[in-house]
Simulated scan of single mutants.
Amino acid sequence: MKDEKSKLLKIMNELVRFFLKAGNHHINIQMDLDEHEGVIVLEGCCTRISNKQIQELDSIINSPRKDEAEEYYWNLIGSNDFSELHLLGALVNDGEVGYERNNLRIKVRRKF
């Protein structure tokens, strides 16, 4: 479970970086853990985000999880000054992206 918590923290860091780049400085974060999965939800007002960015993020977080490459990928995300958002799909099982009235909501789920 220790590695799973570390992976979830890195996923959350990468999503926070995405929010900050999208012009958001007020982010609500919720993380729920149990013995089978972790769920991260970020929500806040974003004023500098395009429909294309939202569609790309949705596509990334809903791409198939890559268990075989996970050990390599999870060390890369959330730990440097460069965005590794494109690697999130390899680490999460599924996600949701919603954007309405400048409110962005991202939810990702990782099963253990």
Rank of each mutant, 00 (worst) to 15 (best):
L42F: 01
L42Y: 06
L42I: 04
L42D: 06
L42H: 06
E43I: 14
G44Y: 01
G44Q: 07
G44M: 04
G44T: 00
C45D: 05
C45N: 01
C45M: 02
C46E: 02
T47I: 14
T47E: 12
R48V: 08
I49M: 03
I49N: 00
S50C: 00
S50P: 04
S50R: 00
S50A: 02
S50T: 01
N51T: 05
N51I: 04
I54S: 05
Q55W: 12
Q55R: 02
Q55F: 02
Q55N: 01
E56F: 05
E56Q: 14
E56I: 01
D58L: 03
D58F: 13
S59V: 06
S59G: 12
I60D: 04
I61Q: 05
I61A: 09
I61P: 10
I61F: 00
N62F: 11
N62D: 14
S63N: 06
S63L: 12
P64A: 11
P64I: 05
P64Y: 04
R65S: 13
R65A: 10
R65N: 06
K66T: 05
K66W: 06
K66R: 03
D67I: 07
D67V: 10
D67G: 11
D67Q: 12
E68T: 14
E68M: 10
E68S: 12
A69R: 10
E70G: 08
E70Q: 15
E70L: 11
E70R: 05
E71M: 13
E71S: 06
Y72E: 15
Y72I: 02
Y72M: 12
Y73N: 01
Y73T: 08
